Simulated assay, not measured.
Amino acid sequence: MSIYLIRHTTPLIEKGVCYGQLNIDVTDTFESEAEQIQHALPADIEQVYSSPLIRCHKLASYLFPVHTISLEPDLMELACGEWEGIHWDAIPQEVIDPWMKDFVNVCIPGGESYVQMHSRVTQCFTRIINASKPVAIVTHGGVIRSILAHITQTPLVDSFGAFKIHYGCVMQLQATPAGFRYEALHNITTEKEQHKPSSFKR
C-alpha cells in the first residue's frame, strides 16, 4: 500500500508566532501552492484523512473534492497551550528553559510534550494503515516528522535534524516486507520558518 503525507500550505500568521493548534487560515498563495501539491499526487487515492484544523481541512477539500474526508483530531499539530499566539522570542526565558532543555519529554504549560503528541499520532497512524487502499493524510509538519521518526526508528530528539518538512510537502510511504520506506515527492524550500526561540539552536 502507499500512504501520502501532505503538509498544509503557508499559514496566515506572522513568522515567529507559536501557533500550534490555533485554527488559523492560509495565505492568498493557497491555490498556487495546492496546485503544485496536486501535481505530485497519483489519481488512485481512495481514502483521505485530515487534521480538523482549517489549514489542513481546506487543503484536503481542495485536493480531494469528491472524497469523504475523515477528520482526525489526533492528526493535529503539537498542542502549545499557553504559548499559542505568542511570539517564540517573547516567552520568558525562565518559562521556556525547561522545555528548551528537553523538548521531547517536557510539557508545554497547558499543552503537551513531543512524546505525548508522538503517542497519539502513531496510534492514529496504526489505525489508518490497517486499510489496504492508497491513503492520503493531510496534516502538519510535526505530525509528519513524528510519523517518519516512527517508521525509521529515529529518536525524537534527532527528528528535527533528520526530516525537513516544508509547507506543502508531500511524502510517499511505501509498505515493503522490511517496513515502510519513504520518498519526498514535493518539498520546496520556502522562507525559513521559526517554530522555536531564535536562541534555540537544536
Results as ranks from 00 to 15, higher is better:
residue 158 D to R: 12
residue 158 D to I: 01
residue 158 D to S: 13
residue 159 S to L: 02
residue 159 S to Q: 09
residue 159 S to K: 03
residue 160 F to A: 12
residue 160 F to E: 14
residue 160 F to V: 03
residue 160 F to N: 13
residue 160 F to Q: 14
residue 160 F to T: 04
residue 160 F to Y: 14
residue 160 F to S: 13
residue 161 G to K: 11
residue 161 G to Q: 11
residue 162 A to N: 09
residue 162 A to V: 11
residue 162 A to E: 07
residue 162 A to F: 06
residue 162 A to H: 03
residue 162 A to D: 09
residue 163 F to R: 04
residue 163 F to P: 04
residue 163 F to L: 07
residue 163 F to E: 02
residue 164 K to H: 11
residue 164 K to M: 06
residue 164 K to A: 10
residue 164 K to I: 15
residue 164 K to F: 12
residue 165 I to V: 12
residue 165 I to S: 02
residue 165 I to K: 01
residue 165 I to Q: 01
residue 165 I to W: 00
residue 166 H to V: 03
residue 166 H to G: 06
residue 166 H to S: 07
residue 167 Y to F: 15
residue 167 Y to V: 08
residue 168 G to N: 00
residue 168 G to Y: 00
residue 168 G to P: 01
residue 168 G to T: 00
residue 169 C to P: 02
residue 169 C to E: 06
residue 169 C to W: 01
residue 169 C to I: 09
residue 169 C to Q: 06
residue 171 M to F: 07
residue 171 M to Q: 13
residue 172 Q to H: 05
residue 172 Q to W: 01
residue 172 Q to P: 01
residue 173 L to R: 05
residue 173 L to V: 00
residue 173 L to N: 06
residue 173 L to D: 03
residue 173 L to G: 03
residue 173 L to S: 09
residue 173 L to I: 01
residue 174 Q to T: 15
residue 174 Q to A: 03
residue 175 A to V: 09
residue 175 A to Q: 13
residue 175 A to K: 12
residue 175 A to F: 09
residue 176 T to A: 09
residue 176 T to W: 09
residue 176 T to Y: 05
residue 176 T to L: 13
residue 176 T to P: 02
residue 177 P to M: 09
residue 177 P to T: 07
residue 178 A to P: 08
residue 178 A to L: 11
residue 178 A to H: 14
residue 179 G to Y: 01
residue 179 G to I: 04
residue 179 G to P: 10
residue 179 G to Q: 03
residue 179 G to M: 07
residue 180 F to L: 05
residue 180 F to I: 06
residue 180 F to A: 06
residue 180 F to H: 00
residue 181 R to V: 15
residue 181 R to S: 08
residue 181 R to W: 05
residue 181 R to N: 11
residue 182 Y to Q: 04
residue 182 Y to T: 04
residue 182 Y to L: 05
residue 182 Y to N: 04
residue 183 E to G: 10
residue 183 E to W: 03
residue 183 E to C: 03
residue 183 E to P: 02
residue 183 E to I: 04
residue 184 A to N: 07
residue 184 A to V: 08
residue 184 A to F: 03
residue 184 A to H: 11
residue 185 L to P: 10
residue 185 L to E: 03
residue 185 L to K: 01
residue 186 H to Y: 13
residue 186 H to V: 02
residue 187 N to L: 05
residue 187 N to H: 08
residue 187 N to G: 05
residue 187 N to I: 04
residue 187 N to C: 10
residue 187 N to P: 05
residue 187 N to S: 04
residue 188 I to D: 09
residue 188 I to Y: 14
residue 188 I to R: 11
residue 188 I to V: 10
residue 188 I to N: 10
residue 189 T to M: 14
residue 189 T to R: 13
residue 189 T to W: 00
residue 190 T to Q: 14
residue 191 E to Q: 13
residue 191 E to W: 00
residue 191 E to M: 14
residue 191 E to F: 00
residue 192 K to R: 15
residue 192 K to A: 15
residue 192 K to W: 09
residue 192 K to N: 14
residue 192 K to C: 10
residue 193 E to I: 15
residue 193 E to R: 15
residue 193 E to V: 15
residue 194 Q to K: 10
residue 194 Q to C: 07
residue 194 Q to P: 04
residue 195 H to Q: 11
residue 195 H to D: 11
residue 195 H to L: 15
residue 196 K to P: 08
residue 196 K to D: 07
residue 196 K to L: 12
residue 196 K to Y: 11
residue 197 P to K: 04
